[in-house]
Design a binder for these strands. Structure first.
Lengths: 227, 227
DNA sequence: AACTATAAGACACTGAGTGCCACTGGAGAA
DNA sequence: TTCTCCAGTGGCACTCAGTGTCTTATAGTT
C-alpha cells in the first residue's frame, strides 16, 4: 500500500519535471516510466491516460465529494453543502502548493492538459447540479437555475484558485474562496428562491407559516433569518 | 472549393453513421475514410482528431462570434451582444436538426466526445468573458462576475439546447433560448451592476448625472429605462 | 512455511496522428 | 492550345499512446 503511493508519487513528480523541462508532447510515457524507475506498463496501471499523470486523483476527490453531499443533513441549506464541497476541492490543491503551481504553469501552456482539467471540473459541476436537483426540487424552472448556480460555484472556485496559483500558491486560498463564494451566493440566493427580500418579522413571537413538504433546511433558514 | 465541402460533409456523415451503428471506439478512421471514399490521410486533412469528425466547425464559429462581438457598437449593452453571440451558436445546431440530434445521442454515450464538446463550449465561454472584460471593465470585482455571467450564459445555452435535442429537434430553439437568457440575465444584470433597483424618475425632465468615462451603452441604457 | 492477493514486469498488438513525397485536375497566363 | 501553378489528395512509413495477457515478485495471512 505504501509502495503503491510511492510509485504513483514518483511518476507524478517525474512527469511534472519532464513536461516542464521538455514539453508535454515531446515527453514519452517511456521516459516518464524510466525516470520513475518503473516499467512503462506500470504507468498505465496508475493513470488512464498520459494527461492524468500530473493531476490529483480527481476520481477519488469526486467520490469523496459526492459522499459528503449525500451525507449532508437535510437541515443544511444545499448551497452551504455545495460551498463546503467546493472547499474540499480547493483543499486538494492547497495541500501541495508547489506541485499545484507547476501544474498550473503546464495547464496554461498545453491545450491537451487544459481540456483535461476542464473535463474534471465539469464533473464536479454535474455532481453539484445533481445534488441541488435532489435537495431543492427538480422542476423545470429550478433545474436550469441549479445548473447556473453550479456553474457559478465552479467558476468562482476556478477564478480564486487561479489567482492564488498565479501568486505562487501563498496565502489562504480556502479563506479567499469562502469569502468569494459567500459574496457570489449571497447575490444569487434570492434569485434562486424567487423572493427578492426576506420577510419582515415582528416582536418576539415567531409564527411560521409554510406548506406541508417544504424542505426542512428552508424552514430552518427562515427561522434563523428571523432570529 | 465545392469539392472540399463535399468531402468534409461525406466524412461527417460516414462518421456519424458508423459511430451510431458500431460505437466510437469500435470505429477506425480507416473505416470512416473508406465509407466516404477517400484516403485515411485525407480524413486528417479535414479534422485534427477523430472526435472532430461529427462536430460543426467550432473554430470557424468561434472566429465568427469573436468578430461579431468585436464589431458590436459600444452603444449596445454587452449582455445583449453576448446574448446575440449565444444565439449564433445555437443557430449552428438549428440549421441541421437531424445531424444535431444524432450527435447528441453520441455525446451522451461516449465520454471522449462529451469531453470534446465541453472543451468547445468552454472556448465560447472564454470569448464571452474576454469581451465583457474589455467592454465593462476588467477591475477585480468585475472579472469574477464576468466569468460567472459567461458561465451562466453558456450553461443556459446548453440547457435549452439539450432539452430541444432530447425533444428530437422540433420547435424554435432560438426563441426558447432568447426567452431563457432574458430571464436569467434579467435576474443577473442588477447583480452585475451593484444596483438593486433602477433610479426613480420624475416628470418630463431627464437629468443624467454620470462620471466621465462611463461607458456609453450604460448611459444609453439608463436613459432608455427612464423613458 | 505454504498460500493468496495484489502490484509490477514483459511483450505483442492495434490504431491515432504526423511527416514526407508523389500525383492530379482545374484555374489562369502566355 | 499549351504551359504553369497549386490546393487537394493518395500512399507510405513512422512514432507513440493505450490495451490484453501472461508471468513474476512481494507483502500479508494462517
Amino acid at each position: 500500500m505504501a509502495v503503491r503511493r510511492d510509485v504513483r508519487r514518483s511518476l507524478t513528480a517525474a512527469a511534472l519535471d519532464l513536461f516542464l523541462a521538455q514539453g508535454f508532447d515531446e515527453t514519452t510515457v517511456d521516459q516518464i516510466a524510466e525516470a520513475a524507475g518503473v516499467a512503462r506498463r506500470t504507468f498505465f496501471r496508475h493513470f488512464r491516460v498520459k494527461e492524468d499523470a500530473i493531476f490529483p486523483d480527481h476520481d477519488a476527490v469526486l467520490r469523496e465529494i459526492v459522499g459528503h453531499l449525500e451525507a449532508a443533513s437535510p437541515l443544511v441549506p444545499p448551497l452551504t453543502a455545495v460551498t463546503e464541497a467546493a472547499l474540499m476541492v480547493v483543499d486538494t490543491y492547497a495541500t501541495d502548493p508547489e506541485t499545484s503551481v507547476k501544474r498550473y504553469e503546464l495547464t496554461r501552456r498545453v491545450p491537451s492538459l487544459r481540456e483535461h482539467e476542464i473535463g474534471a471540473t465539469s464533473r464536479y459541476q454535474r455532481a453539484f447540479t445533481a445534488f441541488l436537483n435532489e435537495r431543492d426540487g427538480a422542476d423545470e424552472p429550478r433545474r436550469l437555475r441549479h445548473e447556473v448556480i453550479s456553474a457559478a460555484v465552479v467558476t468562482t472556485h476556478n477564478h480564486v484558485l487561479r489567482a492564488w496559483l498565479r501568486g505562487g500558491g501563498t496565502g489562504d486560498v480556502r479563506a479567499e474562496l469562502t469569502e468569494a463564494l459567500s459574496g457570489i451566493l449571497a447575490g444569487l440566493q434570492p434569485w434562486l428562491d424567487d423572493r427578492d427580500r426576506p420577510r419582515e418579522v415582528e416582536d418576539d413571537v415567531l409564527i411560521v407559516v409554510t406548506r406541508r413538504g417544504t424542505p426542512l433546511w428552508k424552514i430552518a433558514q427562515e427561522i434563523e433569518a428571523a432570529g
